[in-house]
Amino acid sequence: MLSSKDLLGLKDISKEEIELILSTAEAMKEILFRDIKKVPTLRGKSMVCLFYEPSTRTRTSFELAGKYMSADTVNISTSTSSVVKGETLRDTGRTIEAMGIDLVVIRHSCSGAPHMLAEEISASVINAGDGMHEHPTQALLDMFTIKEKKGRIEGLEVAIIGDILHSRVARSNIWGLKKMGANIRVCGPMPLIPPNISDLGVRVCSSVEEAVEGADVINVLRIQRERQDKGFFPSLREYAKIYGIDREKLKGAKEDVLVIHPGPVNRGVEITSEVIESSCAAIEEQVTNGVAVRMALLYLLLQGGAKGEGAN
């Protein structure tokens, strides 16, 4: 049973809720391997993917998740919506709610925008990434992948490497993994380490070698070119050399280390092709798992309310 009509972040949900989502996703994953990838569960339900930021994979993943569950899905992205006409998010929310939708998946460049929308409308809201705040479904699929590969999350040593400051993926992973009992280290160029991050219960490492030492999982974040222009680090070349994950740096990690990446990957910058293609990486499986996790969320939110067992 999820306690809220919305999924806005992992900070405010419980360990039990995360476990429920992950176990439901397991059942959903089976559907993805059928010849007929469709169940009638959400027939008659409609959802809107409201994307104020360009995204192909997350939007497609949500859209397919909805379609596999028989929900009707509609996409609105900035270029085609009334956003350009100056309509506020609150008004847009009200407008699409008036059309009878049951759920909105929102991506927005402003942190907190999904909160605002969730307050405004009674339909469910799923945060598909807001500013530098949270990206809960990405963290859930990361955790799903970790659990699938490692059999557990509790007690694992997880290193998150890269631009932590601007990363909503990092924040959601920190909240979720901490709740599930993992130990987290973060590492990146120091200007990209957010202030007071250690107050969240993570260890800040000044070198990748230190962060990787004995790690069970390495979550490599995408580095954006714009960060160099803003002076957070001197060059992509230097970043790749010092913070990029290659075979050599993996040596200090556990032998069966799992390497994940939220994608899309800048090959040769934050991670080498060699590592991507190696058996320790599960980047494509993450994508598959993303659909399963999103199907689970749609099911849990759209069928709302308490968990019950059918009686004859």
């Binding site: 176990s23 959903m28 169940v39 569960t41 968990k307 059918g310």
Partner: peptide, 16 residues
């Protein structure tokens, strides 16, 4: 579970 016709009526999401 995902094929039930009473999901809505029960207003619940039984474990899948």
């Amino acid at each position: 579970t995902m094929y039930r016709d009473d999901l809505e009526a029960k207003n619940c999401s039984p474990e899948v």
